[in-house]
Simulated assay, not measured.
Amino acid sequence: MFHGIVPPYLLEQLERTAADPNVRARIRQSLRHDAVLRTRPAAGREPAAAAGGRKRAVYDAENGTDLPGTLARSEGDEPVRDEVVNQAYDGTGATWDMYQQCFGRDSIDGAGLVLSSTVHFDRGYANAFWDGARMVFGDGDGEIFGHFTAAIDVTGHELTHGVTQYTANLVYEGQSGALNESLSDVFGSLAKQHALGQSAAEADWLIGAGLFLPGVQGVALRSMKEPGTAYDDPRLGKDPQPADMSGYVDTDDDNGGVHINSGIPNRAFYLVATELGGNAYDDAGRIWYTTLTSGNLPQSADFKTFATATQTAARTLFGEDAPQLAAVTNAWQTVGVLDSDSELLTAAQSGLQPSAPPSQPPPEREGSAG
C-alpha cells in the first residue's frame, strides 16, 4: 500500500524537463522507487501502545532503503541533533494531537497504534509516503524539493491515509481514490491549522507549503482554496487540478486522476469551513470525520455518494435546519457535484447513518493500493 504526497505526473514532468542531469537522475530514481513500492503488499502494522495514548518512534534509514531503519527518537526522548528526526517527531505528534483533541481518536487506528516514521530514505528521494504501517520521508532532490519533514500537513496527509485504511478503506482509483486523497489533504491541513492555532479564515489552505526550494515558481503542491493555482513553473508545468466538475479530468493515469480530481472535494471542504467560520476542525471537521468513520461509506464511493453522506452527517450532528447542513449543500452545489435541492432528499434516503468505526482495517481490495 503506497500513497505518495507528490503525484507521479509531477515527477514525470520533472524527469523530462530538469536541466541538471543530476536532478533528472534523482527524480528518475524516485520514480523507480515509487513504481516498486506500488507493487509491494501493505507493510505489517506497528504494535498498539499497551495503554493507548500518544506513542511515537522515529527511525533513520541512513540514506538506505531498508525499513524501518535505526531507531533515532522515541516518545518522551529529548530532541536530537538531527533536525529532520525532530521534525518527523513533531509532525506525527501534531497529527495525533489533532485527531485526539478534536475527534477523540487515539492514533490512526483508534486503538493506540504507534506512530512510526522513517527519515533519510535513500539519497535525493523526492517524495514522502505511507506504506500501510509507517510514514517514510525523503530528503528531496536538492533543487526542486527540500526535506519532506518540514511540512506538518504532509505528515498529517500521509497519516490520514492510515485513518482511511482503518475506516472507510476507499478504493484507490477514480473518484473514490480522489476522495481518499482529498480526505488526506483535509485532515493534513487541519493538523497544521490545529498546531498553529489558526482559524479557517487565517489558514493558507495549501498542501506542502515550504517543500519547494527557492527558484521554484510555486507555493505548494496543492491549493484547497484555489485548485489549479499552486504552481506554474517551466520544470513542473502548471498545476492541473480542476476547481469544479466542469474541469473534471477523465484519465487512466494516476489511478484514474486521484491526485488531480481531488481538488474538487478539497474546495468543497474549504467552502464549508469558511462559510461556517471559526476553526475548520470544529463543525466542518466533525462532519467530514463522521462521514469517514461512519462504517457505512461504500469503499467505491463517488463524489455524489460522499456529498450526500456529508449532508446526512451534518443533519445528524446539527439538525435539519442547521446552517452547517446549508453550508455543506451550498459547497457541493458550488463545485458541481450536487446540482439541485432534490439532492437533499437523496441524502435523507441514503441510510448512511454515523456509527462506530471498525477497530481493525477491512481486508485489502484489489486496486486499493497506489
Rank of each mutant, 00 (worst) to 15 (best):
V171S: 06
T308E: 11
S340T: 07
H33F: 11
L271D: 14
D185E: 14
V219D: 05
D253A: 15
S350E: 09
Q165T: 13
N86T: 10
L325K: 14
G237K: 08
S368T: 15
L113T: 08
D109F: 02
G52I: 11
I108A: 12
V171F: 01
E15R: 15
W96M: 08
L221C: 00
T251I: 01
R286Q: 13
Y270S: 00
A301I: 12
S294V: 07
L352E: 06
T164P: 04
Q353M: 04
L71V: 15
K192E: 13
F103T: 11
A150I: 13
D239T: 02
L67G: 14
G44N: 14
K238Y: 00
S107H: 03
D139Y: 01
P227N: 00
A195I: 07
A61H: 03
F137T: 05
L179F: 09
A111G: 01
G277F: 02
A230C: 01
G247W: 01
I152V: 15
R38I: 12
E83T: 08
N330T: 15
I152Q: 10
N266S: 06
Q13W: 04
V23T: 09
F212C: 07
V258T: 09
V36C: 07
A168V: 12
R286I: 00
T334H: 12
L221R: 01
F306A: 02
P361C: 03
L179T: 11
S189A: 14
N330C: 07
Y231W: 05
P362D: 13
N266C: 06
Y59R: 12
A331T: 06
Q13G: 15
H157V: 00
S340Y: 02
Q198V: 11
A57Q: 14
G177W: 07
L206M: 10
F2V: 03
G142H: 15
N169E: 10
A150E: 10
T164L: 13
P357V: 13
G256T: 11
P242M: 02
T149M: 03
L67K: 08
Q193G: 09
H120C: 05
G208H: 09
D66W: 09
T291V: 05
D283L: 00
P362M: 12
G197P: 12
K304N: 04
H259V: 00
S107Q: 04
G285T: 04
I108Q: 05
V249D: 13
S199G: 14
A309R: 07
L206K: 08
V154P: 11
F129L: 05
P354F: 15
F318R: 06
D131L: 07
G210M: 07
L196Q: 13
S223C: 02
V6F: 03
E75Y: 10
A301S: 15
A18P: 12
S199H: 03
R315P: 00
R73L: 13
V216T: 06
L345T: 14
A314H: 03
L206R: 10
A18C: 08
G142P: 14
Q333L: 04
E364R: 15
V249I: 08
G215Q: 05
Q29F: 09
F306W: 11
A301G: 13
